[in-house]
Design a protein around this nucleic acid. Sequence first.
DNA 1: TCTTTAGTTCATAATTTTGTGAACTAAAAA
DNA 2: TTTTTAGTTCACAAAATTATGAACTAAAGA
Lengths: 155, 155
Amino acid sequence: MAILTEKQKALVEKIGIFHETAGMQPAAARVMGLLFVSSTPQLTFDEITELLQISKSATSNAINLLIQTGQIEYTTFPGDRKRYFKLKIKNWREGFKKKIEVMTGFQVLLREVLELRKEENTHCDCSKLEEVVSFLEFLHQELPKLVERWEKSRT
Amino acid sequence: MAILTEKQKALVEKIGIFHETAGMQPAAARVMGLLFVSSTPQLTFDEITELLQISKSATSNAINLLIQTGQIEYTTFPGDRKRYFKLKIKNWREGFKKKIEVMTGFQVLLREVLELRKEENTHCDCSKLEEVVSFLEFLHQELPKLVERWEKSRT
DNA sequence: TCTTTAGTTCATAATTTTGTGAACTAAAAA
DNA sequence: TTTTTAGTTCACAAAATTATGAACTAAAGA
């Protein structure tokens, strides 16, 4: 069975903490770390369990979460019941788009604020809020173009 | 003392949940919501405590966190010991920059992964990882320019 | 048919996060 | 000097999140 060097273990934790900080469950975050770091491009359920020293249920839980959120995927081989898990990095563009959606989605809440303030007839200055709304709108338009621009720059 | 309408209360919660989802502590997230929604442009410690129905310690904790992370600020008035808290929306550009830094900061971890893989002499395909690194680099360069472009478009 | 494999599920335990209220502080007011 | 105001601090409680291990399932192999 594959084993991790100390350096690899440390990096798994580092990447784990990064994802944890971004709101991911600890075990799932370590699985991400492991799949990034592992020299083997794909790992089985049991390998993940053993390399991370977590219980089978923790692994099951983490893996299902990551599959559901589109961050990992698996392949199988004929005559082998194991699933081989790997990062779905092909999809990083998708992931980026999702992040943009969330960020610019705050716009909707800000509009509600502005609407409500109008109703309540308050006389306070809303120009800064309007500025943020405008910027989020701008981002929403421009970020996809930016991705395209990058894609062209690579060909 | 100011009181919130049902609509306002609902929106405070909505904005609260948005910030909570983004990793903020619940109470702090409600304070953000309140300061966005409140028709009064600034609120005192006690107003926050009463409007949100939380304890003084929860308010103290939340406020200090938000001040520390540069998301709110306060003003005072001569002959009045109270602090009047408000959003530091002037700083939203700063906040945006911070978010970019965090996101593109993942690049550093990815480089470590690539470095380690080279050391371990693995033969697996790293091209997708390199692609992500390249894109994060591109973003790091381009996003500040994008902000500038938006600023010009507004004048 | 019996066993093994590759997981899943669930009750419960451990840990972490968050909130509370009472006691405290430091400055201003009376 | 005593009291009030505007908070802060801290020990503890409540709640939410995670992890565990034992029991289970469903398919494949012997």
